[in-house]
Design a protein around this nucleic acid. Structure first.
Lengths: 194, 194
DNA sequence: ACGCGCGACGTCAGCCGCTGTCATCACCTA
DNA sequence: TAGGTGATGACAGCGGCTGACGTCGCGCGT
């Protein structure tokens, strides 16, 4: 007889997603989530720094995946090539099997401003980490920040499309299309006020 | 003898910024802010939906300023021209006189993750509004979202530079430079993996 | 001049997110 | 067998935030 079951964080995350989806985020108490897996509220907050974090835990993996794409890229790569490499590397965390799970999670997030806020924050952290890495490779400001933020934007647009109803393409394919669109967009003549 | 002084929201905002700057955001209680201007905590939350909002109230003005630049732009303008117009229009809210105030405000925000989260959220709301306006002008996806997010990114980078120590240029000048940098960045050859 | 609704505010009670502190109890190690 | 370790429970408490209700000056209509 073990005193406590392993995988506590994972069980809390699964229970939280289920309760949020059925009863709503604000209507679900941290104590309820904990009790639904036989734990107390205090233990919930030992695993997650705050109530929202139970839906976002593990995002460091996303950052690592993006950065992994950068270290593999050749030294003479342009910033946009580095962005493409990071995107492709990060896409590995989103195989087609996870699409339905991502969809459910996103419906919960879309229904609560506080969760959208946290999601944006995580994307911002990702962009900041990418920016640091780009600066570490000698790319100067403001190009490094612009490239990093663009990567986050492209990923966000691609992810949204990836979980759209009926979408069949992989997230990597979508990313390439969005990146091409961004290139075309900025290539057009800019502000020529007469 | 009037029952209450006018300009309640403004006095609360000023008092909050002062207290946050001297004592820290988390160490400052909503009740303290209210009492420092002769009001109660309950009244504070009638003016601001939450404690953080006291620092961000009025951001709808920023959205309006950006959108105003769009409606004045010629019909045949490209997305990037529209972005430039919106940026230029929004820059009017940041005259040089406000630079020091912006600096103080930013130091407070930088010292608290919860405030950074809210700031990112506001930028996201701005981007969403811009995206809607661009789609309303017939720009299709994903170009509209990419252009809108790029505008927000450029503004963010420019604003950061604008409040940097020793910076003398106007925010409008900085915006133009950052926008040009973005164009050069994406114009370079993208992912050509061999 | 009188009455009356409106709107900003105060008071009170209460939920919930979140934290510090201390005790508990299996497991592991010497 | 004694002691250390680590995840958990129990409890108290603060502060953010809300609903309900009462107060009171002001402007409106008649």
């Amino acid at each position: 007889m073990v005193r406590w079951q392993p995988g506590t964080s994972g069980r809390l995350q699964a229970a939280a997603l289920e309760l949020f989806a059925s009863n709503g985020f604000e209507q679900t108490t941290a104590a309820e989530i904990a009790q639904s897996v036989g734990l107390t509220e205090r233990t919930f907050f030992r695993h997650f720094s705050d109530k929202r974090e139970v839906l976002f835990h593990g995002q460091e993996l996303l950052v690592e995946a993006f950065l992994a794409g950068l270290v593999e890229a050749p030294g003479e790569a342009t910033p946009m090539e580095l962005v493409a490499a990071a995107l492709e590397s990060g896409a590995e965390l989103f195989p087609d099997e996870r699409r339905d799970h991502s969809r459910l999670r996103q419906t919960v997030i879309e229904q609560n401003p506080a969760l959208q806020e946290r999601e944006r924050h995580k994307m911002s952290v990702l962009a900041a980490a990418l920016g640091d890495a780009l600066r570490g490779r000698g790319i100067t400001e403001p190009a490094a920040t612009l490239a990093a933020e663009s990567a986050a934007t492209v990923f966000g647009v691609a992810f949204t499309q990836w979980i759209a109803p009926g979408e069949q393409r992989s997230i990597s394919q979508i990313e390439q299309a969005v990146l091409a669109e961004l290139r075309d967009l900025t290539a057009a003549r800019t502000a020529a006020r007469t």
